[in-house]
């Protein structure tokens, strides 16, 4: 895990160079004729789409963590109706396509509740979908804290709420971090589906740009880069957090 930094850097460059060369050879083989000038005019649209994606993702992350936590508590509850309800919600949200959830949620549920703003509805729906996955990641982490820790917490006099707050959650956070990061990266990419309820986020902007400028890859390559610009720092930050929470057990 702990390789010397210079060797690490050298290898990273070597691998990137090899991949770039491979890509170059592939593109050269199909004789794709690039037309960058025609997409340049759409740059402000592209940037606007990027900020929309970023905003939705940040909002949905907050929603998903709250939903995930609530569903985890519900799944672990000894109250049977609450347990069954939470389990049902997790299974339905995880087991059905996000596309269907967005269409039903926006055109039926939100309309019935008289909520019109697609940005708000989309953010909440995306947050709920990812929250169902997080609920299971959180549940796994909480249940991995052994019975001896719970007993020790009881023995020093903590009640149930104090046991969660001071003993279980601080230890579970560390175990849930890697899975949660992966889910957040998925969330950012899944936000592209929000175009089906009329939100012009990054992918939708690129589609519009491609169809009006008769291009294809000139839109999609920057699209991939625009996502990576967010997801790679996120992963990097999560690894930093993991190191901060690290302790031997």
């Amino acid at each position: 895990m702990n390789h010397p930094p210079t060797r690490r850097l050298l290898w990273s460059f070597a691998l990137m160079a090899a991949v770039s060369l491979g890509l170059y050879i592939t593109f050269a083989a199909v004789h794709y004729s690039w037309n960058w000038s025609s997409v340049w005019g759409y740059r402000s649209q592209f940037i606007w789409g990027w900020f929309t994606t970023l905003g939705i993702s940040l909002g949905a992350m907050v929603v998903s963590i709250m939903v995930g936590f609530a569903l985890m508590i519900g799944r672990r509850s000894t109250c049977m109706p609450l347990h069954l309800l939470s389990t049902g919600i997790v299974e339905v949200l995880r087991g059905s396509p996000l596309l269907v959830q967005l269409l039903l949620g926006y055109y039926i549920v939100a309309t019935a509740l008289h909520v019109g703003d697609p940005l708000v509805v989309g953010t909440v729906l995306l947050g709920c979908f990812e929250g169902a996955y997080l609920a299971e990641i959180f549940r796994g982490a909480v249940e991995s804290i052994g019975a001896s820790q719970r007993e020790a917490a009881r023995a020093v006099g903590f009640d149930t709420a104090q046991t969660y707050r001071y003993v279980i959650i601080p230890q579970a956070v560390r175990r849930a971090l890697p899975g949660t990061t992966g889910q957040m990266v998925s969330l950012i990419k899944d936000s592209s589906l929000l175009s089906v309820i009329g939100i012009e986020e990054l992918v939708q902007k690129v589609r519009i740009m491609n169809s009006s400028s008769y291009t294809a890859l000139e839109g999609y390559l920057p699209l991939a880069v625009a996502y990576l610009v967010v997801t790679i720092p996120l992963s990097w930050y999560a690894r930093k957090l993991e190191r901060r929470f690290a302790y031997e057990t």
């Binding site: 001896s148 820790q149 007993e151 020790a152 023995a155 020093v156 003993v167 230890q171 302790y247 057990t249």
Partner: peptide, 20 residues
């Protein structure tokens, strides 16, 4: 029972300190 328990101190075979 928790109130009574709080007047006692426990030590276990596996130490059971909080590792974090």
């Amino acid at each position: 029972a928790l109130k009574t328990l709080r007047k006692n101190g426990f030590v276990f075979q596996g130490y059971n300190l909080f590792p974090h």
